[in-house]
Amino acid sequence: MRPQLASFLHANRWVWTAIAVVLLWLLLSTVTGRWSLASLSGIVTSASFLTLVALGQMLVVTTGRGNIDLSVSAVMTLSAFLALLVIQGDDGRIWIGLAATLALGAGIGLVNGFLVIGLRIPAIIATLATGYILATAALMANAAVVAPKVSPGLRWVATGRIAGVPVIILVTLLVVIAIALVLRRSVFGRQLSATGQNRTAAALAGVPVNRVLMTAFVASAMLASLTGLILGAYVGGAFLELGQPYLLQSVAAVVLGGTLITGGLASAFGAFFAAILLILMVTIMQIMGLPRGTQDMVQGAAVILVLAFASRSAMTRASPAGPAKGDGNNTNQSAATSKS
């Protein structure tokens, strides 16, 4: 492989996911004998919801140290209920509903961030606990919703089209491009990557690591709450299991999209294409008439296989024990001190 192409592929690992999407879509079209963009638009619509959640998850994962946001599904469900309760099917109240939902997301993100940064609780446990608390809130909201009614305006966002393209896809693309730009071209993108690669080094280089971490958790919760709001409108209400499938799938989309699960390297486009890939896989399995159990197995196996084989090359990082060139002798006293 020519070096330029190699470095392009290294920097743009989403290309592989995109190629997989195209191949699978060709397969689907061949199998069904229909070469329509319409079928793809349905798939991308479903993938849009997943993408939005996955982007938030991606930011949290990129902060490194095994950080993950297990509360996204609970945030989605609760937000869908909250939107129903606040908007009450009235277009005039959409903005209040949007503000309330986003405020809820921001609040949850702040709590998650505080637990992780302030109390030094591992993210997986902190978001697990907030997820429990949110589950109670969702149960209560479920009891409070009497007759779910979706406002026409919100329904248009979820299901409408502009020039034949679903609005939700356009919204998602905007968010994907915005996050991709932030990751590549902004100071925050650099700070996030630095924090994820080596938090100690980032802090010593002057990166405001706590602010970066907090931003990631807040962004994740806000994106999840936004998705919950629109998804609720899409399905015409809210139900307790609304967010449930999105936990594994968001992590799967992050991993399949070329984001390093160990942190420090993210790809927004990768998450987008990986979301499409996942939905496409499920769709193909449905068309092939595979039972649900098999679909689950294939999805689970896909995540494991991709992790085990495809993302290997980018994951090889300098191991402190390894023979770094001409540098095998640094005294690790300070490391031992900081570990204790």
Binding site: G293, M297, G300
Partner: peptide
């Protein structure tokens, strides 16, 4: 975390089948 999350779907899928 991710491998076992993926594996959980395999366990569920087998059980469901």
């Amino acid at each position: 975390i991710v491998v076992t999350l993926g594996a959980s779907f395999i366990w569920l899928g087998i059980g469901f089948t």
